[in-house]
């Protein structure tokens, strides 16, 4: 039980959020979810997450800033970007954190198993 992978989902769309939580919980991950980056940072302060799945367009602090701050606070947390922004591309700062196109998930994701595969890969790294 203690060895379960902990995942934090940051997404302002509750339906997307809930679906992802449900799917990942069914996969036996420990999943928390928040609707914005501010709340997300609080969670990061109090918990340690293996993976954060982050939407980019968020109210307040945006996904990119959230990732940078999280990395400062919790350098071991890995990131998957889950965005609906068509014109999103990885900026240099994110690339410097080791995020590659592989971790870039464009909405809509037709099969959430792709998340599971990526999460497993990231943990095994």
């Amino acid at each position: 039980m203690e060895n379960k992978t902990r995942i934090l989902i940051v997404d302002d769309d509750s339906i997307v959020r809930e679906n992802l939580v449900a799917f990942l919980e069914d996969e036996d991950f420990l999943v928390d979810s928040v609707k914005d980056a501010e709340e997300g940072l609080k969670r990061i302060e109090d918990n340690s997450y293996d993976i954060a799945i982050v939407d980019m367009r968020l109210p307040g602090i945006d996904g990119s800033q959230f990732i940078i701050k999280t990395n400062e606070m919790s350098p071991n947390t890995k990131f998957i970007i889950h965005t609906g922004s068509t014109n999103f591309s990885l900026n240099q700062k994110l690339k410097d954190l080791g995020i590659t196109k592989k971790e870039l998930f464009m909405k809509p994701i037709r099969d959430m198993n792709t998340f599971v595969e990526e999460i497993k890969e990231l943990i095994n790294d």
Binding site: D13, I15, V16, N19, L20, A22, F23, D26, G84, T86, M106, K107, P108, I109, R110, D111, M112
Partner: peptide
């Protein structure tokens, strides 16, 4: 529309 479609597709999958 991407977000609502995400909701639909992921909801169906769940």
């Amino acid at each position: 529309i991407n977000n609502p479609i995400s909701g639909i597709l992921q909801g169906v999958q769940n």
